[in-house]
């Protein structure tokens, strides 16, 4: 996997919805963005929006949750759980989402496109 070193700005922090997802279109790639937020903690994740099992662009509409220490997104179609850190599907190790490095800089959401 080659990583481009330049960060692309996709939207503003205000476009994100706490503890839920939105989707951004970046160079024809659909990317699901999630923000986990509680009183003293905040983290952003970016993974591909394509549900490889349900075969539709819907992952940003899934539910966020945790399985033991792993933060997951649950597919809204058939309920498979994917790790937001590694993209690996907890219910079928063969299946994996693309994971994009993502950060918030001066209220802008930026990510790096991976091939």
């Amino acid at each position: 996997m080659t990583t481009l070193n330049n960060w692309v700005t996709v939207c503003s922090d205000a476009d994100l919805v706490a503890n839920s997802g939105v989707c951004a279109l970046v160079e024809d790639q659909q990317i699901a963005l999630f923000k986990i937020k509680s009183a003293n903690y905040e983290q952003v994740f970016a993974v591909s929006n394509w549900d490889p099992i349900g075969k539709a662009n819907v992952l940003y509409r899934g539910l966020l949750g945790s399985v033991a220490d792993c933060t997951v997104i649950v597919s809204p179609l058939y309920k498979q759980r994917y790790s937001l850190e590694t993209g690996v599907c907890l219910d079928d190790q063969e299946v994996k989402l693309k994971v994009y490095p993502v950060r918030i800089e001066q209220n802008q959401v930026q990510l790096q496109l991976v091939e």
Partner: peptide
Amino acid sequence: GLGCEICKP
């Protein structure tokens, strides 16, 4: 934890 697709709904 953070909850899940069972307890949240």
